[in-house]
Write a protein that binds this DNA or RNA. Structure first.
Lengths: 299, 299
DNA sequence: CGATCTTACGGGATTCGTAAACATA
DNA sequence: TATGTTTACGAATCCCGTAAGATCG
């Protein structure tokens, strides 16, 4: 036999109203039912909570000492219930997400704004991290949701594609490539210029090398950097040309650089959502993924 | 439909064991029953607490956020239950008592010692107050139990007699009354000596005056004080003789005074326990009253 | 005598446990 | 195929509500 929250709520009602009859209506029970409930509660506790005279009900000193404790704990339970409801209805919650810098600084803000306008009570933390760290964070469960390139088959990580990104050539505004038009460019054409590339080991760099060597092409790499922004500045300085994901085109434009799509081969890379493969998603994370999908479905 | 503590305990068990089967044995239920219970709990909360794959159970992020809260609250409930049990079994509690000074300094310590040896975990506060204040404190409920003279019919106060106190004459060791023997003395004999009495209004003084005037006796009051100890010192100084409750005889002896019982009339006053007439007694207070009764029943 | 709590008892709902079905590694 | 969860269903339990009883002012 165990005491129930209902019994304690009834106890509270009796203590407050000083009457079994009134208390019974407060907790939506019949008088006798409440009487039995209190009797059982007292039996469970091993002593009287109330001193009953047929005309009046009074708390015993022990009951009086218990009252504030019970009051507080019942209120705490209500808070827990409310908290749970809020979390499940997305009226409350936390969401930790991460995105690679190129995405965080381009498409993400609009998505976040849309999400926040729907679920204003969910607090979001965004981390800008490179793909490798992002993968690690997702695997460890430190962040629930990441936006990055498809990492391939990684343990404990699930990838949901959002869109596919292609490469663009990057060069200074006055470069020869700029004067040759604005249409697609072949990688072969890029190979004849000094090339500023990402440092190995970089998944991006490896991807490019793999595709080009399959076509018997090879870049004339004269410089390497490990941040895309640095590569951009090198190109702006006139040290060479480069190739970056189309997603980063806005950043390149900001540096005063020009871009043209690259084909032959059209190197494609999936960008999407990384989540932990075995842990369940929070409703907040699911809603964010929906928002991301909606954002790219609309195009 | 309401959630029960049992459901939350089951939730805790599942979260800790990561298994419905193990958790079921922990909470003494069958697997299916626990499964249903969790299903109902989730329905009540409006979302999933666990992500079930047929081979494994994992907390959802929402469930994980709830877990520590639930853990804390369940522990709190256990504490409340334990607290209640302890209070009812006199392994814990507070007891505020008051006693008139003559009693507090004579019989009370032995009673308190006996009580504490039985119920060592009950903390007791003792107030030494005069009869009028004591009555007031009991009426207000500030103290639960007082030891004093019978106050007569007072609103909201119940009196339980413990013993009846008689009066003794008090005089210096070398006094004529001391040389006249050690047996009972008549009040009439006391009237021929200068008398040191309690100041009016004092219930003790009023009692004496009432009884003596009924016998056409009158004291030769030469001095008055409002504390019994002061009266004793005046007598010790040789300013006169006095009459005090037998209960105070030890105090008088300490001042080097002698005493003899007073009769004709044998003025008797009930000493007993004052409690609030309408409020219920705590188990601790009841036990203390029992201890007091036992103390005087043994004689 | 009236108001109020308690006891008695029948009905109903919830919950439990056993057995079977189901789903994944 | 084996392990572990869910569904199905019969049964027991618990709890509630109505009606009668008891008690005190």
């Amino acid at each position: 036999m165990n005491v129930s929250l209902k019994q304690w709520r009834a106890f509270l009602a009796v203590a407050q109203t000083q009457s079994f009859a009134e208390a019974a209506s407060l907790v939506h029970m019949s008088q006798p039912a409440l009487s039995i409930a209190m009797k059982n509660l007292e039996a469970e506790l091993g002593g009287q909570l109330f001193a009953r005279s047929t005309r009046a009900v009074a708390l015993t000193p022990e009951g009086a000492e218990l009252l504030p404790q019970v009051q507080r704990l019942l209120a705490d339970w209500d808070n827990v219930m409310a908290d749970a409801h809020q979390r499940f209805s997305l009226k409350r919650g936390r969401l930790a997400i991460a995105a690679m810098p190129s995405f965080a600084s381009t498409a993400l803000p609009a998505v976040l704004q849309a999400f926040r306008s729907r679920f204003s009570e969910i607090s979001i933390t965004v981390q800008e991290v490179i793909a490798e760290q992002l993968l690690e964070q997702v695997q460890e469960g430190r962040i629930e949701l990441g936006v990055s390139f498809d990492p391939g088959n990684q343990p404990d990580v699930a990838f949901t594609p959002l869109f596919s990104d292609h490469f663009v050539a990057v060069f200074p505004a006055g470069h020869a490539l700029a004067q040759a038009g604005t249409g697609p460019l072949d990688w072969a054409q890029l190979c004849s210029y000094p090339f500023v590339g990402l440092q190995r080991p970089s998944s991006l760099r490896a991807l490019i090398d793999r595709h080009l060597s399959a076509q018997a092409l090879s870049l004339n790499v004269v410089l390497e950097a490990n941040q895309l922004a640095t590569v951009g500045r090198m190109v702006a300085t006139g040290l060479g040309v480069s190739a970056v994901p189309k997603l980063c085109e806005p950043q390149m434009h900001e540096l005063g650089l020009s871009c043209r799509a690259l084909v032959a081969p059209d190197i494609e890379r999936q960008v999407g959502v990384l989540t932990h493969g075995r842990r369940p998603l929070s409703k907040a994370a699911s809603a964010m993924i929906d928002e991301l999908k909606r954002h790219y479905a609309e195009r």
